[in-house]
Design a binder for these strands. Structure first.
Lengths: 224, 224
DNA sequence: TGAGATGTTTAAGCATATATTAAGTAACTT
DNA sequence: AAGTTACTTAATATATGCTTAAACATCTCA
């Protein structure tokens, strides 16, 4: 699966590229509109991720319009800064298939990419488990054994990430880039604090611990 | 199940496409009549959704007539702007199977698509329940225990949506795209207000509450 | 052993999500 | 045309969640 990213903010473009590559997509990046337009119309891609506001003769919207005019119906996800509702309709009007407002969490983008590329449903598990701990990504329910556990949004996102990477330690930078918005300037200490919150809820009341610190490498979920 | 949409308003076409894809249909879109006509008569589809007023040599009505002349009996849903009754008969006369006046709520379209594709009956329940609450999608009656509850149109649509997704929280964006017209620009706060109205009617007078807030994730209906 | 590095904990201020109320519009009835 | 009902928004209040700073604890390696 080939994906083209057209985005002038290098930081964002590279973060997206990295994340998508980790999911085994082949990713090309263009940092300006003219170049991006040329690539989008000449190379065969399975998906385009295009920023609305980019320098060059073509902005994101124009690229989408030209693509559609040229009968290129590759799915497009449009990115834009926190905008008005009018923006949203305009974006979808142009022929884009989906629309994402910055800042967004990487996981959110990945979910939409999967949706547009119609990855088989069974690839994405809805219930993640480790030992007697279970997390349901549809109902957002978290349980340990029979007891319900209530998590906040961030706690849930953190636990989900750790469960998806079960057994292998994730360092704080990794966690920040996956659980927080791509451009969030969050201190590593914030992760530490959230780990504490999580432990309070999923480990402290129980005998066997699941969330482990791997000093120097990060944190991991593991059931013995 | 393959569905073809012939509709020149990109915004509508894309909204429909997305909604239908979420229901696991394979969807193709054509933005003009000539192209659409070619696709409808050469490719095998299980259903066509065709706008009446489209640019090109063929308008929607003509496409349906030509299809029928060519003995292609794929079900057709015709879309049209707020029209006269005369329109309606003309439309069904032409050989269309159903007829929908814009603007319409997505759920309405989905219901008709399901009906025409004869999805197994048990998929579309006519009475939805949660605890002692019941909602009849045919008679529009809502009851809790023995007491009748009167809801307005939007309140009803909201409750129906939540009941269909019972147990799983729906966030405001989801609710807006399913309960309001496809082109409605409605603020998230509107959903909050409607939740309040609903609660006043279905929860406040009763001891056990059914409509729950799941902070950070949305709202859900759930009976313990 | 002890100094620097890494991880833990607590509490407080700030930010955001949700709830509530009221008032303005639009649509429908009589 | 006036009155009613439904719909949506704006303004405000309240609750909860998020993030940081700073103090404390533990580990590692010279």
């Amino acid at each position: 699966m080939r994906i083209l990213i057209i985005e002038d903010e290098h930081k964002i473009a590279n973060a997206l590229k990295k994340a998508l590559q980790q999911e085994n997509y082949a990713v090309d990046v263009s940092y300006d509109g003219d170049d991006g337009y040329a690539m989008a119309t000449t190379e065969p891609y399975d998906l385009n991720i295009i920023d609305w506001m980019i320098p060059g003769e073509y902005d994101g919207l124009a690229i989408v319009k030209e693509m559609r005019k040229a009968k290129i119906h590759t799915p497009v996800i449009l990115l834009t800064a926190k905008g008005t509702i009018e923006n949203r309709t305009k974006g979808l009007d142009s022929g884009a298939d989906d629309y994402l407002v910055k800042p967004f969490a990487l996981e959110e983008l990945l979910a939409r990419v999967r949706a547009l590329l119609r990855r088989p449903v069974d690839v994405q598990q809805t219930v993640l488990t480790a030992g007697d701990l279970s997390l349901n990504t549809v109902t957002f329910e978290v349980k340990r054994g029979n007891s319900d556990i209530k998590l906040t949004g961030k706690e849930f996102a953190l636990l989900e990430y750790l469960l998806r990477n079960q057994g292998k330690p994730s360092n704080k930078d990794m966690i920040i880039s996956h659980v927080w918005d791509y451009n969030a300037d969050v201190l590593p200490n914030t992760v530490e604090v959230y780990v504490k919150y999580l432990r309070q809820k999923i480990d402290d009341p129980f005998k066997t611990k699941l969330l482990h610190t791997v000093r120097g490498f990060g944190y991991k979920i593991e059931a013995e």
